[in-house]
Design a protein around this nucleic acid. Sequence first.
DNA 1: GAGTTTGAAACT
DNA 2: CAGTTTCAAACTC
Length: 573
Amino acid sequence: MERSEGGDFPPKKLQSDTAAFTDAPAKKLARQLDFTAFSDSAPAPAPTILPDHPQPQALATVQPQTQSQTQQVLLMPLPPQPPSHPSIRAVKPDSPRSRPRPSNDAKEGTPKRQKQCNCKHSKCLKLYCECFASGIYCDGCNCVNCHNNVENEAARREAVEATLERNPNAFRPKIASSPHANRDNREEVGDGLILGKHNKGCHCKKSGCLKKYCECFQANILCSENCKCMDCKNFEGSEERQALFHGDHTNNLAYIQQAANAAITGAIGSSGYGSPPVPKKRKGQDLFFGVTTKDPSLSRLAQFQQGNHMKPSAPSSSSPSIPAARAANNSALGSSKFTYRSLLADIIQPQDLKALCSVLVVLSGEAARTLADNQNSMDKQAENQTETSLASSTQDPVNSQKEADADKPMADDCLSGTQTDKVSHDDSSSDGADAPKSRPMSPGTLALMCDEQDAMFMAAPSPPNGLIGHGCDTSSQLPSGQGMTEVYADQERIILTKTEAASQKDQISNGSTNSRPEAANQNGSVGNDLPRTVTPTTKMPQTVIAASAAPSNDLLSKTTSLTENGDLKAKSG
DNA sequence: GAGTTTGAAACT
DNA sequence: CAGTTTCAAACTC
């Protein structure tokens, strides 16, 4: 049985392994595993439980040293380990219901056994019984007509068999830990929250998954996509949930941010942790965005947004504690497109970015002036060498006009609301004065602006010059041809070199301040699952970094790809 | 402590 | 598989 061999009995405790359940083994397999320990004779797993010992201990002794991560291991009951999670472990192994209540633990009981069942009709031979579900004998319980004891071993064994017949995983842990958490220990991410998810998911309807009726909540985990609950509030970023953990959580900005980022990251990443459960009942809402995407990340994000969206009880107005997730969600909904909120969004402060922008703009102006002279001389040389410049010059006015129209808004958008706004314009004008009017923005600048204003691209039917929409082939449009590109590249280098310190500062800042990478990046998906859309504020530094490392051509292509994204978004939006 | 509510488990 | 019933824990008063 389950328990004795260690095999399957692990009560539904919060075991740490995911595998246990997810790959729900076929019945046969399950049985094999379950009874492996019992050699032949004992058809039933009924384990020899020592009444006085909670199963885990008994099992622990049996646990094979070898089982390296085999299923057996997974099936094992929680080892007696001292838990990092006192709140959870202390309780009867796994029954969600048995999950410990921190406050009760002390009150309830002995360290060995924290709770006693009170079964009256099940004879303690059904999963209704915590003891039975946990794979332990009743001992000192308040149950009536209990058969979950040594004296009724036969009956118990039968019951176990019957239970396994119905559900081979009945005695396995219900909670699977996060794939990113330690295998042996569920990862705690804060508030006692554990990364993991209920294998079957809960089906709560009225509790909002914020009461112990909810198995997920009881297990101290967030509801996951496995859940079929209604009006779930047990998701990361949930105000209600936070309120439970922090009576007054209004000041816990860090938590909120972490929660929000984690939620979003989870939504985008491959893992569902942190994303609110998607009620199957609202499948119809999959069309919420009017987009049926096969992209899992988008889909997940949609789920996340959907999830938040459906929480009616969540006061939309709300407290200062409104999680960033909600804010992000709102913005995403508002813009009717997917919006990614960087993990660093709350770490990199707007003022810092503004300062960086200002520095960039100023340096850009300086560099432009410095290079303008060179460029002019180059242009003159070019003119001397060829008369074909006439054709170019005829185009210039047109292009120039378009650029002027386009540049302005771009600059405005890019630096909206900042002091750099004016600076930017000043620089533009100065540039215009010193340089040919037809002069396009440098690829680097475009890249920055592309990153910053992908939304703008959507609105703009036709990017000026086709620079943005068509690969930013600046060189071909300029009299000086490739020379211009080089000039821009030089200009960028100068700017970027000068600002490198600032960029590094940002990077360092990002790295050091993101104290909860695992929480924010639960899926480790940041690198792989880049968002389709980028938040301007955080993207800027990235672009700067990328630009500094990439040659001009790369910048061009980068710009192009970004544009393409913008186009895609426009289509999908 | 009694009664109610809740949702998993069991059953149909 | 969906709907209903049973059950015991969680919760309320």
